[in-house]
Each structure stands twice: as C-alpha cells, then as structure tokens.
Amino acid sequence: MGLIMNFLFHLYLSGNDPQLLTGNLMGDFVKGRIGDDYPPRLRNGIVLHRRIDSFAQNHPLFRQSRQRIDPCFGLWRGVLVDMFYDHLLADEWQNWSPEPLQLYLARARGMVEANRIHLPERLASLVPLIFEALLPSYVGLEGVARALERMSARVRRPNPLAGGAPELEKNITGLRDDFREFVPQVQRDVCRFLAEWSSDYRI
C-alpha cells in the first residue's frame, strides 16, 4: 500500500540495539524472504517487526480497538488503530520512557543513520520526513490528521483514511484504555522473542 504507519511503536519496542532497531524500522519495506546479506541482528529486527504486527493483529485488545472504529472504515480500521496507537504512545511518552521524546527520536535516528547502508532505498529517502516531521507531529491530533491525509493520497485505490482523525477524538477514552493494557503485553512478547536468540539482550 505504501503506507506510513506505526513507526514509533516499532522503534520503542526495539530497545537500544542499533541493528535490531533499524531492522524493526525496515519491516514494512522488506517483503517476503529476508536476504542473507543483512547482518544477523538486523535480520532479527525485521523478524521482530513481523512478530509485533502478527501479535497485534491477533490480540483481543487490538481487535477491540478496531471494533471501536466506525464500520464504514472496513478493513482500514486496522490501519487507523496502528496510527492511533502511535499517537497515544507519543502523547503519553513520559509514562513509558524516562527519556524525553525529542531526545529519544534524535538518538533513534542516529542508530538508523549508522546503518544507512542497509536501508531500502525508499526508506532511506524517508528518514528525514519520519524523524523530523512525522513522528514529532503524532503528539497532536492535528498531526495525526495530516499523516492520515498523506497516507490516503499515497494509496492508489479509493480509501477513507483522510477522514479517520475524528474517530480518534470520538473514541479516545476507550482506545487509551486498550492501549495502556496492550503495551505491557506486547513488551512481554518482545522479551520472549529476544530471549529465543540472545541470552544477553535486555529490552
């Protein structure tokens, strides 16, 4: 689809390993088989991205969030919830990290830039937009609205994403409740995944 969705959530769940974080960010840009030319920890980051997506799509809390969105959005409700969860993470960042959001984004970008040689060309071109414009804007409802409008324009077929922002405002209390309960559960699943291949890694 060419969508820009929940980058912040994936970055946050990556911990402090530069290649794991970079691979997790790359997840939506690497389709099918993961090439052996990627370093092992970066490959694991791509796998982690896919695992997080699968965990979310099949989790009762994420499904509950989707059901809160007006049925007229159909299959696009999952895309909206991805975006809304990024907003909630940015809005409540101080509850989930001791590091200010702007400092975190600068540090995360540094890790990604250090691995730029491995980035798919399209993602490499988007790094400034992601870290300088998109993610900082997710704190506000107006930033979410603008991001959804951009996403809608990038999708070739007709879609309702540009009109999705009011659904966030209308359902904010329920979505926030789902999100706060969901985050610790996905964190535990990430820790289980990391323990499978690295006994010395700590998120």
Rank of each mutant, 00 (worst) to 15 (best):
P71E: 04
F84L: 03
Y85D: 02
I52G: 03
S65Q: 06
N58H: 13
L61Q: 10
I52W: 00
G74T: 10
C72R: 15
R51C: 08
V81A: 03
S54V: 00
L89M: 10
L88S: 06
L80P: 01
V79K: 01
G74M: 04
F84I: 02
D70F: 04
L75E: 14
D82Y: 08
Y85H: 10
G78N: 04
L89D: 04
S65L: 04
N58D: 14
H87L: 08
R66S: 11
I52F: 03
R51L: 09
R50C: 02
N58V: 08
R63W: 08
D82S: 09
D53P: 06
F73R: 05
W76M: 12
S65G: 09
G74I: 11
R63V: 10
F84K: 01
R77V: 00
I52D: 00
M83Y: 12
H87Q: 07
F73Y: 12
D86P: 05
P71L: 10
L80T: 09
H49Q: 11
R51K: 15
I52C: 08
N58C: 11
D82I: 08
D70M: 11
H59P: 08
V79Y: 03
V81N: 04
C72D: 14
L75K: 15
P71R: 12
G74K: 11
F73P: 00
H87M: 07
R68I: 11
L48Q: 09
D53C: 12
D70P: 01
S54P: 08
R63N: 13
R77D: 04
D86H: 08
R51P: 01
H87K: 07
Q67V: 13
F62R: 01
H49P: 02
P71I: 10
D53Q: 13
L75R: 14
H49N: 10
H49V: 09
F73S: 05
L88A: 11
A90P: 04
F73M: 07
S54G: 13
D82C: 11
G74R: 09
A56I: 06
S65C: 02
D86S: 13
P60L: 07
H49G: 05
L80D: 06
I52V: 14
L89S: 00
F55H: 04
